[in-house]
Amino acid sequence: MDEAQAVLDSIEGTVGEIAVDNPKMSMRDVDVFYAEKQAIFGVDLDVANNEVIAMIGPSGCGKSTFLRCLNRMNDTIPICRVSGSVMLDGDDIYAADQDPVLLRARVGMVFQKPNPFPKSIFDNVAYGARIHGLAANRAELDDIVVGSLKRAGLYEEVKSRLDAPGTSLSGGQQQRLCIARSIAVSPEVILMDEPCSALDPIATARIEELIDELRENYAIAIVTHSMQQAARVSQRTAYFHLGKLVEVGDTNEIFTNPQHELTENYITGRFG
């Protein structure tokens, strides 16, 4: 414990350039507390448009907690408290006049375990569009569903059985269904919390290709346990340790020439 505290105290500020030009999201001095326990310590970070930013770090380093701050998913945890500023297009999403429902329509999320609704494939994808009233009629809804499934690379596999239950798909297909569900509401940012950790390597490869394609239209923040994955899909990488953002920078730079000792230790596999 004391050792961890010593390490924590030794991390002073973030190495690397946290800011980008024209950021989509911009976090400054974000602290997160679970009741009395502080989970995130003063993190500053920008997310750029058309960019995949990977968040890596050992278990319990707070990367998932931080990600969930970006669309206020932590609101649902009563003991969780967030301070600092999280800006989306220059507006603080934690401001009193900001609506979490609207926010989550703009900042979508894909979870660790595929979690399709126990409804048909069509209804899964259509759900977001329905509740937000994005489609004026059935034809528009069909377009949204088919378009989303195509962009998620799932359409060819399921086009003949759109009314089959979403849960009847394989794990990798379910995760792509969840991605299709997210992009059906045309979000601006997609948050992915270890989207491939429950999948086999082939399904993982499909998702990674998909992430790379989605980058054209969205800003994507992905939390991952796999450094290879971070290296494959992301343009920038942020390394978290014990709730602090230790280092952030160009992915190639981080993996080939880490500046901070802790980053280097993690990347070379000395702990994690």
């Binding site: 609207l102 989550r104 979508g108 999320m109 375990k113 609704f117 509740i131 569900r181 509401v185």
Partner: peptide, 27 residues
């Protein structure tokens, strides 16, 4: 009802009432 269902609905912007009545209550 598994929390993953709630999160899934919240994650695409369902309001609390929609989460409850569309997903949690049927299950």
């Amino acid at each position: 009802v598994p929390p993953s269902i709630r999160e899934a609905a919240q994650g695409i912007g369902a309001s609390q009432v929609q989460v409850v009545f569309h997903h949690v209550l049927p299950l």
